[in-house]
Nucleic acid binder design. Structure first.
Lengths: 130, 130
DNA sequence: TTCGTTCTACGAAATTATTCGTACTTAAAA
DNA sequence: TTTTAAGTACGAATAATTTCGTAGAACGAA
């Protein structure tokens, strides 16, 4: 199992932006999440520096403006986040989460079809297993 | 939209237990989450008292040992938690979360059937809407 | 009634996270 | 070359959270 990483609120926000936008400068990130909240630039900088020290981010220092990248994958974070929710809020049942998600966030017809297709694929591969 | 409630790590743990077990004493909760982590009893007590002051818990003081209940519903917390994940990690697509959950937590045949049934119901009711 | 156990209340220390000011560096523009 | 704009580093204040010790109340058993 992947190591359990504990992220603070601020760290999560920064990772989300980096995953969406790709490698970014502190300024880039700050415009998106710090500035709108009236936080000073050095606040964003500090958090990113700490994340760098912790190994949550890597950075390219070749130019004056450092460019940061997420050092942990969105994929593993998704898995951890979803797994945690299933465990804590849905008594371990992925199916319950699925139905909850479908019930509350009304996917479009297209999305529903997408899911059905996916489900039938799952069925088939389940047969072939082991 | 329901008010955005921010819970600390410790608060979440306690709510999870209360939702699972129903009304409980501090001792009950402590045995489940404090004791295994070698925390002292008063630590659990203190957090629950603070939660009570914040209105996150209610309590019955009729006996010496107070009995606490969660004051916020598991349902709304689920909605908030799932909504947040969909927004932050799945670009707003519930379908993506669903497929991720199905892909990583291999539900049993029974669960799959359950989901399919649920899906077809959704389809029908979608037709009737507005 | 007295003792021992179990509880709550509360204050304060310790820890963790966020926030920001200041100093110094770099590089480009004037 | 001087000035100005934009960056980084870093220390320290503040805020939020967790942790625990101590005091005193409640209550049952001896």
């Amino acid at each position: 199992m992947a190591k359990e990483i504990k992220l603070t609120e601020g760290e999560q926000e920064i990772l989300h932006v980096l995953w969406q936008s790709g490698p970014s400068s502190v300024r880039d990130i700050h415009e998106i999440i710090g500035a709108p909240k009236q936080k000073s630039y050095t606040t964003t900088l500090k958090i990113m520096q700490i994340m760098y020290e912790k190994g949550l981010l890597t950075r390219n220092e070749s130019s004056k403006t450092h460019i940061y990248k997420a050092a942990i994958s969105e994929k593993s974070s998704k898995q951890q986040a979803v797994g945690k929710i299933i465990k804590n809020l849905f008594k371990g049942s992925a199916a319950q989460l699925v139905m909850h998600a479908l019930g509350n966030h009304r996917p479009s017809k297209e999305e529903l079809d997408e899911i059905k297709t996916y489900l039938s694929q799952l069925d088939e591969s389940a047969d072939k297993k082991k």
